[in-house]
Nucleic acid binder design. Structure first.
Lengths: 218, 218
DNA sequence: TAGATTGTTAATCGATTAACAATC
DNA sequence: TAGATTGTTAATCGATTAACAATC
């Protein structure tokens, strides 16, 4: 185990490892090597070993990693060994869709409150949660011990919503609005903007369109 | 202009630049320096200059970048100067939400077909598009010259859907299913899984929960 | 001309990969 | 014991940043 200075790249891989390990667990697999994992996940085995070893000695030389034990350890590292409450702001189509994720968010994560500034939506129910006005944000965050937030409001409102969330004590934000949210506060902000992703993907297209018969020009 | 070996990090930043430049354009701003951009976007100005200069000499020494011209150039680089057709597979809540993005996807990107394997959904209309069975995928991709795809099916179906998309000639995939999609083909796959993002975010939480009065233990 | 800002080189920093001793 | 696989060091590779000559 080395001195811990964990890069974001590592933190992004941990959920990928976790998901695969849970899959193995369901398949009754007891042990896995970094080589097996690497092959399935398209990641260099040395990288997997290095990632894991920066948090502790989880493997057994000559054997590999115990699936159950490694799952437990990664959950601890990601702090998924406690229940984490999430708020969702923006009860539009996307917010609606994500609120249904509660069914999928095993691992102790749960959306426990939904907010929207539109009075027409307030009071209505999505996935068993009453849509609240943003005025109630601060109190609800405290009362329900909400620590993460998902932003699915229009771009024009996103920065203001983020400011309110941070003011309310939120520790991390997953932003779906197509705008760059900024803060001076010590709050992690992830951007998950569909438009930007598609635009980046377009870069990898071949220059020319397919012809209608499926062939390519040039 | 250097020899072009463009990293994914650069490609991920280009849409961010583009979005900000369009914002400037709307504000009637004619010229912008890398320093101004960097300040707003929280990116090192040298990085911005380096990113842009790997595609050409777009700026003027002593002046900065012409907003209109740079927008045009970045659009060309991202291949957004042509209409790009997108297919969406999975007409659940998330698929439904994303299909409404057509309104936001300026820049010549458009979802032109929606597929779902559920016979109960087929024939129904979302955002003006009839939900088609996956059997029609290959023909529709050819006919409508579809080049990118968005996957919003359940995890268990995602790999099979991806295989079909690639077989049909799709050049890039944005995958929302919580599973690692793989391919040997020369197709770019982006993962946009909400669960994994939230799990990574959880890593940055402080170890302890807030108490109900808002204070922190330890 | 003086001030500003690019494009690019060189320096730094960080992340990935290879290699192998330790050891199950 | 022989084979397998970890944890870790060292080597490599790549990305970011600083610095500055060129020049608008």
């Amino acid at each position: 185990m080395k001195a811990p200075k964990i890069s974001e790249a590592v933190v992004r891989r941990l959920p990928v490892y976790l998901r695969y390990l849970i899959h193995l667990q369901q398949m009754q697999v007891k042990t896995v090597s970094s080589q097996q994992m690497g092959k399935t996940l398209d990641i260099n085995p040395a990288q997997i070993r290095k990632d894991l070893s920066s948090f502790g000695d989880f493997g057994k030389k000559g054997i590999g990693y115990d699936v159950d034990y490694l799952i437990e350890k990664i959950r601890q590292i990601l702090k998924l060994d406690q229940e984490i409450h999430v708020a969702l702001v923006g009860a539009g189509h996307l917010g609606h869709a994500i609120s249904n994720y509660n069914a999928y968010l095993r691992d102790n994560m749960r959306i426990v409150a939904i907010f929207d500034n539109d009075p027409a939506k307030q009071g209505k129910t999505i996935a068993g949660l009453v849509i609240q006005p943003l005025e109630e944000l601060k109190d609800t965050v405290k009362q329900r011990q909400i620590r993460l937030a998902i932003i699915t409001v229009p771009a024009a409102a996103a920065q203001a919503v983020a400011d309110q969330l941070i003011e309310a004590g939120i520790e991390g934000i997953l932003n779906f609005a197509p705008v760059n949210i900024r803060t001076d506060a010590d709050v992690k902000i992830y951007h998950a903007d569909v438009t930007s992703s598609l635009q980046s993907l377009a870069y990898y297209l071949n220059r020319t369109k397919l012809n209608s018969d499926g062939s390519r020009n040039k």
